[in-house]
Computed example of a mutant assay.
Amino acid sequence: MSSLFGMCLLLLSSLAWSSSVLVMGDSLSAAYGIPKDRGWVALLEQRLDENNLKYQVVNASISGETTHGGITRLPAVLDQYKPDIVVLELGANDGLRGAPLPVIEKNLNRLISQARAAGAQVLLLEMRLPPNYGQRYSDGFSAIFTRVAEQQDVPMVPFFLASVVLQPELMQADGLHPNVQAQPALLDQVWPFLDRLLQPLSQGG
């Protein structure tokens, strides 16, 4: 009897988490330099629960990740979790390393195609570079995200760090990574765009 009860609990649990959101990102989403449970992705899980949206949040972000690394890892993660939505937060490390812009663009397109082939919707997060990388490269880099979003017809969150990057009190000492206090603002930057994807799914539409 206890064995049957346990099986029922497992079944109910799997049904409760029948939908999932996958975050594929780099250190900005991997909670670099801060406790994991204080990062914006962990806060996303809390907000979903508060809004009675039954989604499992899978954080597949790794510090230092590039678009090429994402292409390598994403298929296995998609196969394992079968997410309904993929939040794509990659490209910053490519830019910081001076990768060729056409390569970054090609990789982002491929990542979106991988996710869509697995039946997931995609939310793209726009990244930008510090001005010291030169205006031509920096402008070309940020333009990639708008162009990819338009060509692929996917929603894009405007510059992910817009609300925190110019506030030193919200950044870690390296000037690149938001601190604990900045994480709610990062979630607020993503939430309106993600919520538009979540609501039709939660309503069965």
Rank of each mutant, 00 (worst) to 15 (best):
A162D: 15
Q172C: 04
L53H: 10
P178C: 03
G95N: 12
Q181W: 05
L166F: 12
H177F: 10
D37C: 14
V122T: 07
E150A: 09
Q199Y: 13
E150T: 14
W191K: 02
L28V: 13
P155R: 00
Q152G: 10
L198P: 05
G119P: 15
G204L: 06
R47I: 01
S61Y: 08
P100D: 07
Y81A: 06
Y137Q: 00
F145W: 06
V23C: 06
S29N: 12
G69A: 06
V190D: 00
Q121F: 06
V77C: 02
R38N: 05
L108R: 10
I144N: 02
A30K: 08
A31N: 14
V157S: 00
S142H: 10
V148H: 13
Y32D: 09
A115M: 09
G134T: 11
R147N: 14
P178A: 04
D195T: 15
P168G: 05
D174C: 07
L108H: 10
S3N: 13
L111P: 10
S202A: 10
A31S: 12
E105A: 05
L4D: 12
L124A: 00
A162V: 11
A60L: 05
W17C: 08
L10E: 01
Y32E: 04
L53Y: 02
I62E: 01
Y81Q: 03
L201A: 00
S113Q: 15
I85H: 07
A99W: 09
R47N: 04
Q46W: 09
L15W: 13
S202W: 14
A173D: 08
A92W: 09
P100C: 00
G33V: 11
L123P: 03
L22Y: 11
L201F: 03
S138W: 04
L9I: 04
R128K: 11
L96E: 04
W191L: 05
D188P: 09
F193T: 03
V41C: 05
E65S: 11
L74E: 06
L78G: 02
L176M: 06
L197C: 05
E89L: 00
P83K: 02
L101E: 09
L176E: 10
V154L: 04
L43V: 07
Q172A: 00
L124T: 07
P102V: 05
A117V: 12
G91H: 14
G33N: 03
L201H: 05
V86L: 06
